[in-house]
């Protein structure tokens, strides 16, 4: 069956390196963007306004209830159909757009959970001292919530690393795309094992980092 796995890796390691960097970059952008959008969505979700919380609920349900690949296809083909001016934009932005929105749905639920987990007495105390609802959220609730949600956010990043593999479908340079590059050289099976190993190394080392992070955060408890 042709060359061995190690042989292929030694010969083409820069290809895999670039793919791995692409994957990490896509995941980072998606989770960062997802955190910003997701925070807004979670605040809408917790809002007393039925319309706003209803919208946020639908947003989360639609994005969590449909496959990411379908979202990518719709983003990639449908957005430029509706707004032709966007046709000149590199495809990577459509893929990142879908990744970010998808991530924001999950992150918003994480944040909502984190905010809800802060003891109600904190809000009551802050409000009884005369703080506005906005001030109370920003100065009292969110700082405590963030501590709870950081590990969950890091897990979302780890999950996103695997999700970005779908970007390879659109020939964006990430780890899964290296398979297409090397299949053109008639190397069809070796890259799969190399790719799996690299994903594993990335996710395991990140889980380890999350564990260290959790330990350090618990010091102040």
């Amino acid at each position: 069956m042709g060359k061995g796995i190690l042989e292929v890796f030694i010969q083409y390691w820069p290809v895999f390196l670039q793919g791995a960097l692409g994957t990490l970059k896509f995941a980072a952008i998606a989770v960062l963007g997802g955190t910003v959008v997701g925070t807004l969505v979670s605040i809408l979700h917790l809002s007393k306004n039925r319309l706003l919380s209803g919208f946020a609920g639908v947003y989360v349900n639609v994005l969590r209830g449909t496959p990411l690949l379908v979202q990518m296809y719709i983003s990639y083909f449908f957005i430029p159909m509706v707004i032709p001016a966007l046709n000149s934009i590199d495809k990577i932005y459509y893929v990142l757009f879908a990744l970010t929105l998808n991530s924001s749905a999950y992150v918003s639920e994480v944040i909502r959970g984190g905010i809800n987990a802060v003891d109600k007495g904190q809000t009551e105390a802050a409000r009884s001292l005369g703080m506005s609802a906005k001030n109370c959220m920003i100065r009292i609730i969110l700082p405590q919530a963030i501590k709870n949600i950081l590990p969950a956010l890091a897990n979302e990043y780890i999950a996103m690393i695997k999700e970005t593999s779908l970007a390879g479908t659109f020939m964006c340079y990430e780890l899964m795309y290296t398979r297409t590059l090397l299949a053109n050289k008639y190397l069809v099976w070796q890259p799969l094992f190399i790719i799996a190993a690299i994903y594993l190394v990335m996710t395991l080392s990140l889980s380890w980092l999350v564990k260290v992070l959790e330990k350090r955060m618990s010091v102040s408890d």
Binding site: Q11, Y12, W13, P14, Q18, G22, D90, Y173, E174
Partner: peptide, 20 residues
């Protein structure tokens, strides 16, 4: 050709999606 690929790919930018 294959030996030269290492150098060739290093010269690629880290622009992520360089496919368009």
């Amino acid at each position: 050709t294959f030996k030269s690929i290492t150098a060739a790919f290093l010269s690629l930018t880290l622009a992520g999606c360089s496919s368009t």
